[in-house]
Amino acid sequence: MQVTIRSLLTACLVSSALLGMGNEASAAAKSVQEQKAEEACVVDPRGEILSLSCASCHGTDGKSVGIIPSFYGKSPEYLEAALKDFRSGTRYSTVMIRHAKGYSDEEIRLIAQYFGTVWQNNK
């Protein structure tokens, strides 16, 4: 029974991971520049669903209207490092440490990729 549940859960995650495969396969024949430009526009559904809640405190697409820091326009590399530093406690926070601990390295990478590129699509 336990095994069945686990394999079904895996199926849920794997099948959603496979969603991006079509894009990746077709991108294989393209130049690195073309590939990068495309990556910026193709939204990974996993990254999207992990990221949308962040906007409740940080503003839509990370564009804050209040005292909470904005991260609109930041790069994926910056965001990934910041989230990891919050998670480890290297960077001081009140609440971010409690949030960041809820995400794996892979999930942090997906969130950073989403917010690090979503503003480019708004241009």
């Binding site: 405190c57 503003g59 209040g66 005292i67 009140t94």
Partner: peptide
């Protein structure tokens, strides 16, 4: 810390209502 969270409470409200209705 408690003062910062009080300020973030205001910041949270401003952003969540903007994110939903703005």
């Amino acid at each position: 810390h408690l003062n910062e969270e009080a300020m973030f409470a205001r910041g949270w409200y401003n952003n969540i209502v903007q994110d939903i209705w703005g």
